[in-house]
Amino acid sequence: MAGPLSEESRYQPISIDGFYDAIKHWDDRTGENAVPHYQLHQIEKIADNILLYQRDSGGWPTNKHPLRVVLDEERVVALENQNLADASFDNRNIYPQIQYLSEVYKQTGNVRYRDAALRGLRYTLDRQYPNGGWAHSPDRHERAYYRHITIADEVMPGVLGFLRKVAEGKPPFGYIDSKLRQRAASAVARGDALLLRLQVRIDGKPTGWAGQYHETSLEPVKGRAYELPGILAWETVPVLEYLMSIPNPSADVIAAVQGGSAWLESAKLSGFRIAKVDTAGQRFDYHAADYDLVVVEDEQAKPIWARFYDLKSSEPFLANRDGSKVYQLSAVDIERRTGYSWYGYWPERLLQERYPVWKQDNGL
């Protein structure tokens, strides 16, 4: 044991922040707590897990926990599933795996991790629509929203931020050749132009972004049954953060950031807060909860945002799994009330800190 452990100990831990969403979804779904996990310095073990779940296409399915010590029977199933066409960019997926594998290659020099990362990069580039967008799950057809251009869960902004680093050769992507970097740069240019085009306008004024858009008409469309077409506050934030990361922004990028930030400012709500109240524990299909959420009137509460706003009136709304639109949290079934973020403070830091700094940096 001394040999392998000493070998592992010389590696520097690599951040797994990019897998936060996947880990949370895995834990919520399984509720498991007895499976052992690798430590952060065991980077090759973690990378081997990532390789285990990579599909033949080069992509990855969602919500796989990269730190779990995989049981032998699970490993057999995972190997059998490598030919599945179920890769997805949902839940901040695929680009974190490529980033991690590139970091591991940088430390170990093991070309298996480099080659897997390059396959993932080529998958990402190959799956971009000609109009510049990326689908939720490019190879899946069971549900319409799998094919829609997706902003939600940082699909478009996450992929574009990743590809921008690749195109610029930023660490850990210095090993990628000039041809692939140029492909990444071209993909970014098309994606940036589409992001600007997709910004929702009300009476000619730019607002935020919808969660998903039809892949050909580019009209806002619903995702899952309770994700109705609308302007989404949470999803607008990473788009603006991505646009603000662009050096020497064009006039169009500046106008999009200013318009989106102004809309977020206008969309904030006041006079109430969301409180947790204890209830008997329940396990649903995708999560467990021993609490409920209620609206509490509070004139001293800080501003809060709804997740969904109407495309024409900017009025906040919510929904149920049956697709019914409602306007009060109490009208949402408890499974969706506790299993989805209908209200939050997502734009707070952007408006208070990042946007003012961005304006100053750009002389605005």
Rank of each mutant, 00 (worst) to 15 (best):
M1V: 09
I16W: 02
Y20R: 10
I23R: 10
K24T: 11
A34G: 15
H37D: 06
H37W: 09
Q42M: 15
D48T: 05
I50T: 04
R55G: 00
G58P: 01
K64R: 13
L71W: 05
D72L: 02
E73K: 13
E74R: 07
E74M: 11
R75P: 09
R75K: 14
E80N: 10
L84R: 10
L84P: 04
D90W: 01
D90H: 14
I98R: 07
S102Q: 10
Y105A: 07
R122K: 11
Y123H: 03
R127F: 11
R127M: 15
Q128L: 02
G132S: 00
G133Q: 03
R140E: 03
E142G: 08
E142P: 02
R147D: 15
I149S: 08
T150I: 00
T150K: 00
I151G: 01
P157G: 08
L160Q: 04
G161R: 06
V166R: 09
V166L: 09
K170H: 12
P171Y: 13
Q182D: 12
D192L: 07
V200Q: 11
R201F: 12
T207A: 10
G211H: 05
G211Q: 05
H214G: 07
L218G: 07
V221N: 06
E227I: 00
E227G: 07
E227F: 00
L228T: 04
P229M: 13
L232D: 14
I246G: 07
S261F: 08
L264D: 12
E265A: 14
F272Y: 08
R273C: 06
R273H: 08
A275F: 12
T279M: 09
A280C: 04
Y286N: 15
H287R: 05
D292M: 10
V294E: 11
E299W: 03
E299I: 06
Y309R: 10
Q328H: 08
D333H: 06
R336T: 11
R337Q: 14
T338S: 14
T338F: 13
Y340H: 09
E353D: 14
Y355F: 15
K359D: 04
D361V: 05
